[in-house]
Simulated scan of single mutants.
Amino acid sequence: MKLGVFMVLLNNKSFEEALDYVAEKGVKAVEIGSGGNPGAVHCKPDELLADAGKLREFKKAVESRGLTISALSCHGNPLHPQKAIAQESHDDFVKSVQLAQKLDVPVVNTFSGCPGDSDNAKYPNWPVAPWPNDYSELLDWQWNQKIIPYWTENGKFAADHNVKVGIELHGGFSVHTPGTMLRLREAAGEAIGANLDPSHMWWQGIDPVAAVKILGKHGAIHHFHAKDTLTDTDNMNMNGVTDMHSYAEMQDRAWQFRTVGYGHDMKTWADIISALRLVGYDYVVSIEHEDGLMSVNEGFTKAVHNLQQVMIEEELGEMWWV
């Protein structure tokens, strides 16, 4: 496995300045925003697809620093009921897949999206309870009419370009658990897999080690994010896991994102990394910084330091003791 970073934390720096910074910290791979919510500050798909010279310069900037690109990321909502929003997210995905193929990047990360409650809806609708029965009926309609058809077609599009789709299991979107991930993968094909982020498992009450084993058994982990979550017991008892307080209201939230090691101890993170090795994941562990108590520099630096202690990087070799 390699230690990497999701570069959007450095959107205030130029591309080459950001690459220099992360290389100096000792990471080996970069995940680059190519549209959607991460933005496209460091990577302009339209420009790179249209200009072979700019594409070569882009690749050289990464490779000359001893880095690789683990994924392009364009997290959006291609199933949004407002057609303009859905189209923009879809276009970002298509261009990201096309660019990933040209860059020999094996994964494009995104969200599954979430439809509305009908073709006439204005906003997404995320059912989280089976009763009243309206919610179960809505969920069936969303999956059968929107989610499966979209990803069956676009999973094939990605596969035809030799690219895998890393869907981040994130609340507010239709695919947010190992179970929903496997449901989509079974229907839409093996190009579809998870960009697994433990932080989103913890707040849902899912053990990330168990999630790794469940998904890993099916070869369904295409990429991995390293981010932690801290739960505030009192606020959790007040507001529950679906707490709607803003992420900025940290004193009142039931849970909040933290840098690696500040929500769970390093033994827990060692168990996660070991589980990844156990199921055969031998790719990038990409640090994502969304810690509201630390600067980008401090949060990222501490994550690098903490993960370096538990990363398993060398090939196992022969079990001489067996």
Rank of each mutant, 00 (worst) to 15 (best):
L3T: 00
G4D: 00
M7F: 10
N12W: 09
S14E: 11
S14Y: 02
F15S: 09
L19T: 07
D20K: 10
V27C: 00
K28F: 00
V30H: 06
S34L: 10
G36F: 13
V41E: 14
K44E: 01
L48P: 00
L48Q: 10
K54T: 07
R56Y: 11
K59Y: 08
R65M: 01
G66H: 09
L67W: 09
I69Q: 03
A71P: 03
L72H: 07
H75Q: 12
H75A: 12
A84Q: 13
Q87R: 14
F93Q: 07
V94N: 02
V94Y: 05
S96Y: 09
Q98C: 05
P106Q: 13
P106Y: 12
F111H: 15
S112P: 11
P115M: 09
Y123L: 14
P124H: 11
W126K: 01
W126I: 12
V128R: 13
A129C: 05
P130L: 11
P130C: 04
W131I: 05
W131A: 05
N133W: 11
D134Q: 10
L138N: 12
W141D: 14
W143I: 12
K146M: 05
K146C: 09
K146P: 03
K156C: 00
D160A: 11
V163P: 03
K164S: 13
H170A: 02
V175I: 12
P178D: 15
R185L: 08
A187I: 08
I192Y: 07
N195T: 15
L196W: 04
L196I: 14
D197C: 12
W202V: 15
I206Y: 10
D207E: 15
K217L: 12
H218G: 01
H222R: 15
H223A: 13
A226N: 07
A226Q: 06
T233R: 07
M236T: 04
M236C: 00
G240P: 06
A248M: 12
A248E: 15
Q251P: 07
R253D: 00
F257P: 03
R258P: 00
V260A: 01
D265N: 15
D265H: 11
K267H: 03
W269P: 09
I273K: 02
L276H: 15
G280F: 05
V285S: 00
N297K: 14
Q309N: 06
V310T: 10
E318V: 13
W320E: 14
